[in-house]
Design a protein around this nucleic acid. Sequence first.
DNA 1: GCCAACGTTGGC
DNA 2: GCCAACGTTGGC
Length: 153
Amino acid sequence: MRYWLMKSEPGTFSIGDLAKAPQQTTGWDGVRNYQARNNMVAMRKGDRVLFYHSSADPTAVVGTATVVREAYPDSTAWDKNDSHYDAKASAANPIWQRVDIKFESEFARPVTLEELRGVKELSKLVLLQRGSRLSVQPVTADEWKMVCRMGGL
DNA sequence: GCCAACGTTGGC
DNA sequence: GCCAACGTTGGC
């Protein structure tokens, strides 16, 4: 089993929105970055996800989710009315993929970016690397455990 | 709102 | 294939 971190702006889609969604599940569409897409394609059912609020106050890991459906075409890419429309994508050539994730837990307390930066064991966390802005990133098992413990899980 | 860092595009 | 220009991300 592998571990990941996914970013979302809470103003667009928050951990609370995921908890309230039908079947507490959502399709992670709109990703338009190849490296992030490749990470989603590498995801397997049962993989675990840290849910991170970006462009928030405070920015923080706020809970966890699990992968319930592996990569499949992101049809929003060829929807002209979608804000992430990509003229090069089509049903025959989807280019972009999404996975479905299901709500697992909301942390008792958010683990802020500032807190994460203060933990020696998390110095390699992709999120904390200089200039890192990948919206879907890998996390190690040890990092996962540490962040969950900090969140009061 | 600013701006550093990064990814993509397109002219050559 | 290079690289300047441009667009986006995301913390502050």
